Computed example of a mutant assay.
Amino acid sequence: MTPDLTTVVATRNRRDQLLALLPRHTAPVIVVDNGSDDGTPAAVARALPHVRVVELGRNAGAGAARNVGVALADTPFVAFADDDSYWAPGSLERAGELLRTHPRTALLTGRVLVGRAGRLDPISAGMARAPLGTAPDAPGPTVLGFLACAVVLRRAAYRQVGGFAERLGTYGEEALLAMDLAAAGWHLAYVAELVAHHLPAPTGRDPRARRRIEARNRVLTAALRRPGRVVRAVVAEVWRDPAGRAGLADAARELGWVLRHRRPLPARVEADLLALARTRPAADAPADVAAPAPPAAG
């Protein structure tokens, strides 16, 4: 056990998988349930009474659930896990050590191994290439994105920037938080010795619906923080997919919210995002780090 770290697990309707993986967690756990109707909260309470379970009573989205978990944690560091993931033994203890010795680092993202065979996630491979180099006082290569199931954060930094934007719900919500932490002057680092195991179910949620939400959130995130030329490039990219076009229509309905909360990134962070776009193949990166293909002029 690491006494200065709490693991927050957001879940919805994955009772059996959650119950199978919760015993693998090595830090105190807060499970935040997003309105499950499969008996998840009661099942966890019966099987694992030491785990704190918080019921939101509705599907507020993964970002909102994590915000609740972070608010309830009383430790300086918080790790996230999904209901289909867990951290390898020793990883969280090491993450705590690194955050204690690198006070300007807000976020550590680890190496993700997928499935029972432990296949390296392509996103982790891309991060290991370190296109942005390593800051002198950081514990690993600089990143500007992460997978939420493989991240450990400094709670004070997370709360400083407001955590996840709850309006984005689930899928692609990580991008805005990464940008905001970097804009606030914090380091975000990839540390390969921290290992998260991800065991996605072979069948699950509607892939078209997911693409629609991801497209919506890509457009909203760009509109909230990026220059107009990048926003136009993102719009052009998502338009190629019918699900993306539906997501674009969803994003358009949020225009008022975007205008109220738009805050362009500092030039240094925008320059790093463009550098990632030039060096990282889009197929190797999630929407939060793979920028749209060459920005349109203007």
Results as ranks from 00 to 15, higher is better:
D38T: 01
P41G: 02
P41M: 01
A42L: 04
A42M: 13
R46H: 12
L48I: 13
H50W: 15
V51C: 13
V51P: 10
E55A: 15
L56M: 14
G57Y: 00
R58N: 12
N59Y: 03
N59M: 10
N59Q: 04
A60W: 05
A62H: 13
A65T: 11
N67R: 07
V68L: 00
V68K: 01
L72I: 13
A73G: 02
D74F: 10
P76M: 09
P76T: 07
A79C: 02
D83V: 04
D84E: 07
S85V: 11
Y86D: 08
Y86I: 04
A88I: 03
L92W: 06
G96Q: 01
G96M: 00
E97H: 14
R100I: 06
T101H: 14
T101E: 14
H102M: 10
H102R: 13
P103M: 01
P103F: 02
R104P: 03
T105H: 01
A106N: 06
L107E: 00
G110K: 10
L113P: 00
V114A: 09
R116D: 15
R116C: 14
R116V: 15
R119N: 15
R119D: 15
D121G: 13
S124A: 04
G126Y: 09
G126R: 07
G126C: 02
M127L: 14
A130S: 07
P131H: 01
L132I: 08
L132C: 04
G133R: 12
T134Y: 05
A135D: 08
A135R: 10
P136T: 12
D137V: 07
A138F: 01
V143D: 08
A148C: 15
A148G: 15
A150D: 01
L153V: 09
R155Y: 05
R155P: 00
A157F: 07
V161F: 02
F164L: 09
A165I: 09
E166V: 10
R167D: 07
L168C: 04
